[in-house]
Design a protein around this nucleic acid. Structure first.
Lengths: 126, 126
DNA sequence: CTCGTAGTTTGACAGCCACCGTAGTACGGT
DNA sequence: ACCGTACTACGGTGGCTGTCAAACTACGAG
């Protein structure tokens, strides 16, 4: 659950404002499972999966916690390698790293999403 | 992650010494994920899976922790619904509830086991 | 520049938890 | 009954963590 800042120059040019994330090959199972074991974070991941690859800013998730707690959760998800975040204006846009996760742990994300509780409400587009 | 002691009379007669466990239909994803997120517990589950349904007593797992910590880990796994335990003489025998888990969360256990680090050593028969 | 909004940092809090050591229980063999 | 072995209960420790409030930063519109 620790990694060096892997943002390369190439990456900076392709996606300005990208926040640091662990490379797919370095994702750790215990870290991913731990991140998914929190109901708030599982809900974030479920809603991102339901958005079908669309980017959602943090406000798109109407979670019953404060903004600072949401910041914490998004950070845990990013550092575990579950989500990708980049800055766009005043917003942080989030996507699920579904392809990376499937490549690293085949079937895991699908099984977790299938097992996750249904989302309380549909995600509003930002 | 809480349940009432569900041991029924029928169950008592079929398997004396069975310790309380949650019914398969009541397994909670967050609880299961949390139990699997600890490397020691993941290793226990992996070794039980590798034993192909054989019962293993607690000593069969040469984990780098004390016996009292192992007791704690086995308890977490049992209460999360991942393992079944029953007393046999002075030993506690453990099996993986693979069928229950597959029924409740299809594909999850397989994906986790496929992703888990390889066991450091083969499990000695008790 | 000001303002509003999205998001972050910081510190605090209370509960959780992996781990340990110690003393104890449960069981079976002698 | 005693003994050895498998396992547990209990208390303690230090670190972790979800959560919050308050102050702050980053950004873009006007």
């Amino acid at each position: 659950m620790s990694y060096h800042d892997p943002v390369t120059l190439d990456h900076d040019q392709d996606c300005p404002g990208l926040l640091p994330e662990p490379p797919a090959a370095e994702l750790e199972l215990a870290c991913v499972l731990h991140a998914l074991a929190d109901p708030m974070r599982l809900r974030i991941v479920s809603e991102l999966a339901g958005a079908g690859g669309d980017e959602l800013n943090c406000l798109a998730f109407e979670l019953p916690v404060t903004k600072s707690t949401m910041t914490h959760h998004f950070r845990v998800l990013r550092e575990a390698g579950l989500i990708r975040q980049h800055r766009r204006g005043t917003s942080k846009m989030n996507t699920l790293r579904a392809d990376d996760l499937a490549a690293r742990f085949p079937g895991l994300l699908d099984a977790v999403l299938a097992a996750a509780p249904p989302c309380p409400k549909a995600v509003a587009a930002p």
